[in-house]
Amino acid sequence: MANSPSSDDFLYPRSSYRGKVKPENLVFNANLQEFAQRVSYICNLETAGKISPDQAYHQIKDLWKLLKHSKQELSIGEDLFDNNDNDEE
């Protein structure tokens, strides 16, 4: 089947980005989608009794720290050079 989705597409679905297209926004969006996917897995593991609520909390907290660090490194939300949000030239 040439057009069948790969297992990666099934396990790690991605939505297309529709925001302001800048490299840092695209990278952060990918990080955010990965965060959401991993949080979903952790929630499912906790719901199924495979990990404790405390383990789930700490794993999600660690993921949040990584996402926050990513945001800071990419300077998301800090329009250092672009104070005009319009695309007028």
Rank of each mutant, 00 (worst) to 15 (best):
F10T: 13
L11M: 10
L11V: 13
Y12M: 00
Y12N: 03
P13A: 00
R14Q: 13
S15T: 09
S15F: 06
S15V: 13
S16C: 06
Y17R: 06
R18V: 09
R18D: 15
G19F: 11
G19R: 10
K20M: 11
K20A: 12
V21E: 11
V21C: 00
P23Q: 07
E24S: 15
N25A: 05
N25G: 07
L26M: 15
L26A: 05
L26C: 09
F28L: 12
N29W: 01
N29E: 12
N31H: 09
N31M: 10
N31L: 13
Q33A: 03
Q33N: 04
Q33H: 06
E34D: 13
E34W: 04
F35N: 03
F35S: 03
F35M: 02
F35L: 04
A36I: 07
Q37D: 07
Q37Y: 07
Q37K: 11
Q37E: 10
R38M: 00
R38W: 02
R38C: 01
R38V: 00
V39S: 04
V39F: 02
V39L: 02
S40I: 02
Y41P: 02
Y41K: 07
I42R: 01
I42W: 01
I42G: 03
I42F: 00
C43S: 11
C43R: 15
C43F: 06
N44I: 04
N44R: 13
E46F: 03
E46T: 12
T47M: 06
T47F: 05
A48V: 02
A48N: 13
A48R: 08
A48Q: 13
A48M: 11
